[in-house]
Computed example of a mutant assay.
Amino acid sequence: MEGTVDGFRYGAVTPVAAYLMACLGGALGLRCIVRTLLSDQSWKPGWLALGAASIGCGIWTMHFIAMIGFQVVETRIRYDVGLTVLSLAVAIVVVGIGVFIVGYGGASTRNLSFAGVITGLGVAAMHYLGMAALHLNGTIHYAPAIVALSVVIAIVAATAALWAAVTIRGFLTSLGASLIMGVAVTGMHYTGMSAVSVHVHGRTGGPWAGDSPTSLLLPMLLGPAIFLLLAGVVVMFDPLLVLGDGDWNRASASAAHTSPQSDSLFENQDRQEVQEHRVVQARAPQDPNWAVPRGPRR
């Protein structure tokens, strides 16, 4: 018997919440990657790792918040904890590979393409690994063409996100890029979910009889959500990320203008003028009406 699949049990609540989490993870990740580009004194491995973890947690949290709204009317749904946690690890590690490739290798077309493919495949692997963690009284089938489309969307979204991370440095532009990234990642999820059909083995009672998936997923979402909150605090209190690229460059230029080297140039010029003044006084005639010439005033 074919099951009745519904991905929007709570209406627009779960899609909107999932989208916001994807945007939050993307925004934090992009700002952390930008941090390594604004200053050569940044601890690059640490900031890149924080950025990869933020993006990975954002994508994973988006997926399972959206899955709270997923139901098959004829059967209850449970989740395998081990596979669910493994999908989080896959998301962070694979996104990290792409981020480090671009962070250390630069934003060449070759690096972006390679890193985008790896990261996109990792996002898709996280999605379908999370789906493999889903247990129900039936068999899940996928439409191959739609699955392939979801993988392509994941690769394009990952490539665009990595390009934005190394190209867009202003705060507002990074925020706009994260909003677009959220659309792409959430779109990939719901494209993949549209490929799902379920063949139910036998009816197990009324709709949603027994435990709700929220009792399983909500506690698991708490850890990544707290991590994103802490990452947000780190980003908010970093002065370089708050100022943004333009303000940081202006501050650096101002500091260079008033640097000790500039001060030493003025001191040398003052010392030279004093010496010239003493020489003129030593050679001056005894005429009281004769005045010592003065150099140009600075």
Rank of each mutant, 00 (worst) to 15 (best):
G3Y: 01
D6K: 12
F8G: 03
Y10P: 00
A12M: 13
T14H: 05
A17N: 08
M21T: 13
A27T: 01
Q41E: 15
P45M: 08
W60P: 02
M67Q: 04
G69A: 11
T75W: 01
Y79L: 02
I92H: 01
V93Y: 02
V94L: 15
G96Q: 03
I97Q: 10
V99F: 05
I101C: 11
I101R: 11
G103P: 07
T109Y: 01
R110G: 15
L121E: 07
G122K: 05
H135G: 01
G138C: 07
Y142V: 06
P144S: 03
A154V: 00
A164T: 08
A164W: 04
F171W: 12
T173S: 15
S174Y: 02
A184T: 03
T186H: 01
T186K: 02
V196P: 05
H201V: 01
W208Q: 14
P213R: 02
S215C: 00
P219T: 07
A225V: 15
L229M: 11
L229W: 06
V233Q: 13
V233N: 09
V234E: 12
M236E: 12
D238H: 04
D245K: 11
D245L: 00
W248H: 13
R250G: 08
A253H: 13
Q261V: 09
F266K: 12
D270I: 12
R271H: 11
V274D: 14
V274W: 12
P296V: 14
R298I: 10
